[in-house]
Design a protein around this nucleic acid. Structure first.
Length: 265
DNA sequence: ATGGTCGACTCTCGA
């Protein structure tokens, strides 16, 4: 079973990249989780994605946010259900930032964690609240021992090797000690960063700022797109990697897809 | 370098 996560930065403008990426992989992605689809539900390209062989679960809003799960029809995954937000009467914004997909053999929470703007901005508090509510959601929704993965655009770099020039990022909303502690409290649910299980090396990034000149070529990036697996899912993981190829194509997203394989039926 | 470049959408905001 193969799952993937990708901050697509507009699902409509990135349809060509999605199709090209899905068709070039050696093994098909069974469930693809997207963030920043940037389309209201009426504009989500459900039919085009159906033609690629995937059923879509999605919720978006105008211009910003938006999450989706694309389930490969030929994978014959029965009993799929999707819900949005944390179901705790949250900010409406959270409904287009969190998608929980449940199947009989595994479940996944796909999040687009608020970026936070600045450590003095009110949105930074929203970011911390979002993370706290994700942890509370795990406590309610995930049964111990059941394979579970928290994935998506986390907007948090966890360690010094997950960002270029960490010494200059101490007050950045994605690297400040406070937000890394907030993230660690969520991960303390028993989740491990499974890409690191297979790729401990430095210099692996999933985000390159469009505003930094030649960021990809110069290797100036962030590793903020993650898959965090509980013990049952981590034990079943056989690989997890960042696929750098789509960065080289026309009109790439600023994020890079992350793929994982699991020995799960 | 308080810049830079994208995407969605009214022109400026969010990243």
């Amino acid at each position: 079973m193969r799952i993937a996560t990708f901050n697509v930065n507009s699902v409509r403008s990135r349809l060509t990249i999605l199709e090209r990426w899905l068709s070039k992989l050696d093994k098909p992605v069974d469930v693809l989780f997207l963030q920043e689809t940037k389309a209201v539900d009426a504009d989500f390209p459900e039919d085009a994605i159906d033609e690629l062989g995937y059923k879509s679960y999605f919720r978006g809003e105008k211009s910003y946010n938006g999450v989706a799960a694309l389930v490969r029809k030929d994978a014959k995954i029965d009993g799929v259900s999707a819900s949005f937000g944390f179901g705790d009467g949250e900010e409406p914004d959270f409904l287009t930032r969190a998608l929980y997909l449940k199947t009989p053999s595994f479940s996944v929470l796909n999040t687009y964690v608020p970026q936070g703007k600045d450590i003095t901005h009110a949105d930074y508090d929203v970011k911390k609240r979002f993370l706290a509510r994700a942890r509370a959601f795990f406590e309610r929704a995930v049964k111990p021992g059941f394979p579970f993965v928290w994935l998506g655009d986390m907007n948090v770099a966890q360690t010094e090797i997950d960002v270029t020039h960490p010494e200059n990022k101490k007050n950045h909303v994605c690297f400040h000690s406070e937000i890394r502690e907030s993230f660690a409290r969520v991960a303390d649910f028993g989740l491990t960063d499974i890409m690191r299980k297979f790729h401990p090396e430095e210099g692996v990034y999933t985000f390159f700022d469009y505003r930094v000149k030649d960021a990809v070529a110069r290797g100036i990036g962030w590793r903020i797109d993650l898959m965090m697996a509980n013990e049952a899912a981590s034990d079943a993981a056989t690989d997890c990697f960042v696929d750098t190829e789509p960065r080289l194509w026309d009109r790439p997203s600023d994020h890079t897809p992350l793929v994982a394989d699991f020995a799960l039926s």
